[in-house]
Design a protein around this nucleic acid. Sequence first.
DNA 1: TATCGAATAAAATATAAATACGGTCGAAAT
DNA 2: ATTTCGACCGTATTTATATTTTATTCGATA
Lengths: 193, 193
Amino acid sequence: MDRDEKRKRIVEIAGNFISRFGWQKTTMEGIAGKAKMAKSSLYYYFQNKEDIYQAVIERDSRMLRQKVWADISEVTSPTDKLSAYINARMTALQRLSNYYSTLTDEFLDKYSFVRYEREKFKLFEENTIHHILTEGCIKGIFKIENMQKTCDSIIMAIKGMEPILVLRKNFPRGDSIVENMLNLLFNGIRYKK
Amino acid sequence: MDRDEKRKRIVEIAGNFISRFGWQKTTMEGIAGKAKMAKSSLYYYFQNKEDIYQAVIERDSRMLRQKVWADISEVTSPTDKLSAYINARMTALQRLSNYYSTLTDEFLDKYSFVRYEREKFKLFEENTIHHILTEGCIKGIFKIENMQKTCDSIIMAIKGMEPILVLRKNFPRGDSIVENMLNLLFNGIRYKK
DNA sequence: TATCGAATAAAATATAAATACGGTCGAAAT
DNA sequence: ATTTCGACCGTATTTATATTTTATTCGATA
């Protein structure tokens, strides 16, 4: 097992600890124990605890973005894509929330890479929605005047669903809440003669 | 100044303290000081601190509902009403958030009337949106299949705007974010031939 | 190069003393 | 009779301090 493999292994173990017990209660000794090496050996692979945490967050964020992208790639129509996106995003967020649960403002100030990863997810979300909407326009299914602002609005609508959807484990295709919100976003409420 | 007047005065002072420093840092001695009476005299008008808090929350919630309703009554068209509602609701919420800022779960358990007032606001919001949408349907401006679920969706969309709108003091009519979200809710993004 | 155990420094936690605060009561003032 | 008050009590909160836990360093070793 070479250096890189071991680094990955440590990150995996640390991620397990953090998602289960949080950042504070995860100790270097605990990680070392699971990895079957002395505590001090960890410092051969990482500069410090913060460094491991950063690696964990980066790895998980990356995996989650991949998962979301894979899910929306499975369907073809833009409407289905939007539905799949919301579904994947919510379950993804639920997993990530374990990492962020203990997060205070001072914590965010101290470990700025957390902010950075969040910012990255925000950009990913904007790009993905933008991508889906553009595809819908090209296919002649959507008609959008101001693409940027419409993206923003849809993202805001998705964020409004968070409190309800994040509580439930998963919601099947055809979930009435998501379904209804999408219907609203697609058709609007104005009467067309 | 009779008994009732003094009660109102105390509630007003307490509300001022709570909105500025929060519930915990508001002391009976502080309120008494501003009201120019001894701490113990407060207990002649209210049973305990919790009682004052309850009176403050009730008063403010009532005032805010009145303010919101007054604002949407000033305009006539359902689209304007929805716009006015969001505007009024957000500024209202900003004031109220000062009361709720320090709120933890255990706090909510202890002071159940806070939950109660929140529930009341939720009902008020549902009714108001319902009212506006129904009016729009009658006037032939809106066309809504499932009224209840559409209400829910619009409320969720409004909640998604909170994080952005609550930060700013006030947003003029024609604010691009609100304007754009409303446009989306009204017209949707589906192409109509 | 990779691993370790022991030593150190910093942070978290537990303990004890001091203070602040909500609430009570009986007396005084109006 | 109604309203105000100061003194008092017990508990919750804060502060100060001791103790333990934990992150990190370092020299030795295989």
